[in-house]
Amino acid sequence: MTDMTTPPSAPPRTSTHIKITAETVDFWYGDNHALRDVTLSMGKGKVTALIGPSGCGKSTFLRCLNRMNETIPGTRMTGTVRLDDRDIYNGFGDVSQLRTRVGMVFQKSNPFPKSIFDNVAYGLRVNGIKDRQIITHAVEDTLKKAFLWDEVKDKLSHSAYMLSGGQQQRLCIARALAVRPEVLLMDEPASALDPISTTKIEDLIAELKGSYTIIIVTHNMQQAGRVSDKTAFFYEGKMVEAGETTQIFTNPQEKRTEDYITGRFG
């Protein structure tokens, strides 16, 4: 880790406080140059918010962090992403192992057409855990962590589609947490939810912070302000500015950041 990876506007950090770093990341969808020279570090146990107008590359950047972009044909990436100082693209080994360490929650809740229990247990089972006791215990534990246990404990065998939208999204968070990741990527996790469900998700993020490194993409400025420690502003594929959330919101260094945050465009 060098000083270069820390944007000048952020206070200096040492490598023990950093969980993930992206260095000079460029990304293409075919000919579309979606990310340009993005360098950003994300603190361990912190919440980092990625903000910016639609199409600015923030979701693309998020999916570079668990190599999810690789599942889209015709894409290309250059640059380096490190998890605990290990390059996740070169010599990391099995990509599924990476994804158990870097979990992901999607914009639209996407539970499997399976029971609530099986949804949470899925990640454990595909990674080779067969012991019923371990699974049962882990499912209960994870659902409690996702503040969902009390609502579903009597209907674990029911289909996940019986839950409300907000509950489904918390189930998806539980599903991601079940494999005990260190990092949780959240791609606009509350954008399709009502205000009350949104509040619950935000409370959950606050609760998870510390134990997990969370990186959240959001369109909601207030949400970024409420939940995050650090904010990075993306615009047209570039990371314009990153820093402590309070600093970005009160004293942005860049004009474009200020314009976006104050609602002049975006």
Partner: peptide, 20 residues
């Protein structure tokens, strides 16, 4: 989106097809 979700918890393509 369901395939993505399965991949994101560490399933490989074969597991996504067979178990999801």
């Amino acid at each position: 989106s369901l395939r993505q979700a399965a991949l994101a918890v560490g399933a490989n393509k074969w597991q996504v097809s067979m178990t999801m």
